[in-house]
Simulated scan of single mutants.
Amino acid sequence: MAEDFAGIAVVQPSLMDKAEARREFPVRADAATFADRAESGIQFVSRWAGILAFVGAVAAIAWLIL
Rank of each mutant, 00 (worst) to 15 (best):
V58Q: 04
E39N: 04
A49I: 01
D30Q: 05
V11D: 03
R22W: 06
A38K: 07
A6T: 14
V55I: 12
A49F: 01
Q12K: 15
A59C: 11
M16G: 05
D36R: 14
A19V: 13
G56S: 13
A38H: 09
F54A: 15
A57Q: 05
E3A: 15
A32Y: 05
T33Y: 00
A62N: 11
W63S: 08
W48L: 03
A38Q: 09
M16F: 09
A59L: 05
R28P: 00
A35T: 11
P13R: 02
R28G: 03
R37H: 12
A6M: 14
F44G: 01
A53C: 13
F25I: 15
A62I: 07
R22P: 00
V45R: 08
S40Y: 08
S46V: 13
I42V: 11
A19D: 09
D36G: 09
E20T: 12
V58H: 02
A60S: 15
A49W: 01
P26Y: 01
L64E: 08
M1I: 12
A21W: 02
R47W: 05
P13H: 01
E24Y: 10
E3Q: 15
A32D: 08
L64A: 14
A38T: 07
I51R: 08
F34W: 07
A49Q: 07
V10C: 03
A32P: 00
R37S: 11
F44P: 00
L52F: 04
A6H: 06
G56R: 00
F5M: 10
I8L: 14
V10M: 08
F25S: 14
V10T: 10
G56Q: 02
Q12I: 14
V45Y: 15
A21I: 08
S14H: 02
A49N: 00
I65C: 08
W63D: 05
E39S: 09
A53F: 07
E20D: 15
A59D: 02
I65H: 04
A38G: 10
I51K: 04
Q43Y: 09
V10G: 01
K18C: 06
F5D: 06
E39A: 05
A29P: 00
V10H: 02
L52W: 06
V58L: 06
M1D: 11
V10K: 01
G50V: 04
D30E: 13
A9I: 06
G7I: 14
W63A: 11
A59S: 11
A21S: 08
A2L: 15
W63C: 06
I8T: 14
P13M: 01
F44W: 12
I51T: 06
T33N: 07
A62E: 13
S14K: 04
R22H: 13
A62V: 12
L52D: 03
R22E: 01
A6Y: 10
E39F: 10
R22T: 07
I51C: 04
A59I: 01
A35P: 00
R22C: 03
R23I: 05
